[in-house]
């Protein structure tokens, strides 16, 4: 474990917590007898969260952590896997099933056919992998899928008029975690002999590059202190 990877994992955890906070806000808001102004805005406007991206992430964790009970790495590793699995599936459940949260989900805008991402990633994993075993192919699939999982969310943000802060922070943290992982891979490449994982590195690089324009608009909205807005 190195500081870059720990920072990456903590940033990833933060992104999940921000999303859970947002869902909690929507839930508690509708509980009020009189909707406060913020609640009114929250309930009226769509949450800006893409269910498609959440479902892809649940699939990413389900296929990546198949070894959670067979290969014990460390207590930290197991706990984090359980947190990511538990949170990703519960977020999908909330947006799909929860009587209040689902109202804030705008399915007419979240129209990305994520199935078109799953199939090519699966085919690519069958062709390009480190070892042709069931677990390894699914693990590689999870890497390819995670690289593109943010696309439905980014497209939804382009369609969302006013992106609220929590959603913007969520996407930022999600992109930042993988950027920190790239630093971790560089560090491990120079400090650990034979540490070479081209598949992981290229997927991680593609994933981070997909956030490039979001990062640009996110930082310029911070600098100019204006609302985050993505050009359509």
């Amino acid at each position: 474990m190195n500081i870059f990877r720990l920072a990456g994992d903590m940033t990833h955890l933060m992104s999940v917590l921000v999303l859970l906070l947002k869902i909690h806000t929507i839930k508690s808001c509708a509980g009020k007898s009189y909707p406060c102004s913020l609640c009114f805005i929250l309930l009226e406007s769509s949450s800006g969260i893409s269910l498609k991206t959440q479902e892809l992430y649940a699939l990413v964790f389900a296929t990546r952590y198949l070894d959670i009970f067979t290969d014990f790495i460390s207590v930290y590793n197991t706990i984090m896997k359980l947190i990511f699995l538990g949170s990703s599936f519960s977020i999908v459940w909330y947006i799909r099933r929860h009587k209040i949260v689902r109202r804030s989900y705008d399915k007419d805008q979240d129209t990305f056919r994520h199935f078109f991402l799953v199939l090519p990633c699966l085919l690519l994993a069958l062709i390009i992998n480190e070892k042709f075993t069931f677990k390894e192919v699914l693990w590689t699939f999870s890497l390819y899928l995670e690289a593109v999982a943010i696309l439905p969310q980014l497209i939804l943000l382009q369609r969302t008029r006013n992106i609220d802060n929590l959603t913007g922070q969520y996407v930022f943290l999600l992109g930042a975690y993988r950027a920190l992982y790239i630093l971790n891979w560089i560090y491990r490449y120079f400090t650990e002999p034979h540490y070479v994982h081209w598949i992981t590195w290229i997927s991680g690089l593609v994933q981070t590059l997909l956030y490039a324009d979001f990062f640009y608009y996110y930082f310029s909205s911070l600098k100019n202190n204006v609302k985050l807005k993505l050009p359509a």
Binding site: N77, K81, E136
Partner: peptide, 10 residues
Amino acid sequence: DDKEAAHDEL
């Protein structure tokens, strides 16, 4: 060896 095969990152 199997340790190498196990992916130690999240």
